[in-house]
């Protein structure tokens, strides 16, 4: 587990972040600071704004009020800032979103070649190393449609890591998986957490949270209801809503 150093500047700063979809107030003032190397787990009922929040961090969603600063770069309408943040931020989606017309290896090397301007051979070498790290080098020349869900999600993780990001965002990475495939993806994520990667993970996998999270945040109705260490959240939650939600997802 990584040590977090409170002395340095936080790598993610979110101050009073608001987001509306039309009239619907999806984020109602989220404030959070994440230190380098921290693993943050975000959980809460559906519609609570947890996915929306992590999607504002790489500007897949635009926040309308408040301030988000990632690795010293503030997210504004300036496309250069947005692209700079996206280069430092990897994202893994619930539905994998692999590119179906490219092979596994091409999925992984696409961004290094076109964004980082690496040579093809160099990118492929690094790409193969990453595929080995997530345990599927033998699938390098297959297409996403030929892989299982778990394998696809591991490719998606390798694809995000290929850009050598400082931060990894996971948006419900195991929610679309069959039960027997959840573990293979979580194992990769635990391994990644132990390397000291800064991670924001939206998930209901409480085993994962217990094992590697530094802090957990419970979201409800666009607000952070409660936050703290896993120990605090699991053994001594302060808010009734947190207790109720935890009892619902932990009893079965």
């Amino acid at each position: 587990m990584s040590e977090h150093q409170a002395t340095t500047q936080p790598i993610i700063i979110a101050r009073d972040v608001h987001k509306w979809y039309g009239q619907f107030h999806a984020l109602r003032g989220i404030t959070m600071e994440v230190q380098k190397g921290e693993v943050i787990v975000i959980f809460g009922p559906s519609g609570s704004g947890k996915s929306t929040f992590i999607r504002t961090i790489n500007r897949l969603e635009e926040h309308q009020k408040g301030q988000i600063i990632v690795d010293g770069i503030e997210l504004t309408h300036d496309i250069r800032n947005i692209e700079a943040v996206r280069m430092e931020t990897g994202m893994v989606f619930q539905q994998f979103n692999l590119f179906p017309h490219l092979t596994t290896l091409q999925n992984v090397t696409l961004a290094p070649i076109w964004v980082r301007k690496w040579k093809k051979q160099e990118a492929e070498k690094v790409g193969m190393q990453l595929l080995e790290r997530v345990g599927i080098p033998e699938q390098a020349n297959k297409y996403p449609g030929q892989l299982s869900g778990g394998q696809q999600q591991r490719v998606a993780i390798a694809r995000a890591l290929a850009m050598q990001p400082k931060i990894m965002l996971f948006d419900e990475p195991t929610s679309a998986l069959d039960p027997e495939m959840i573990k293979e993806v979580l194992d990769v994520m635990v391994g990644l957490a132990r390397t000291g990667m800064t991670m924001l993970v939206v998930t209901h996998e409480m085993g994962f949270a217990k094992a590697v999270a530094n802090r957990m945040f419970f979201f409800d109705q666009g607000l952070i209801v409660e936050g703290g260490t896993p120990e605090h959240i699991f053994t001594d939650p302060q808010e009734d809503r947190t207790k109720l939600f935890l009892s619902q997802i932990l009893t079965h």
Partner: peptide, 24 residues
């Protein structure tokens, strides 16, 4: 989701169109 994944990787709009969207 295809466009979002490409954006999250930092690809430019031109690259997203020519490498991801148009081929499909």
């Amino acid at each position: 989701g295809q466009v979002e994944a490409a954006r999250a990787l930092g690809l430019s709009n031109l690259n997203i169109t020519t490498l991801i969207v148009l081929p499909q």
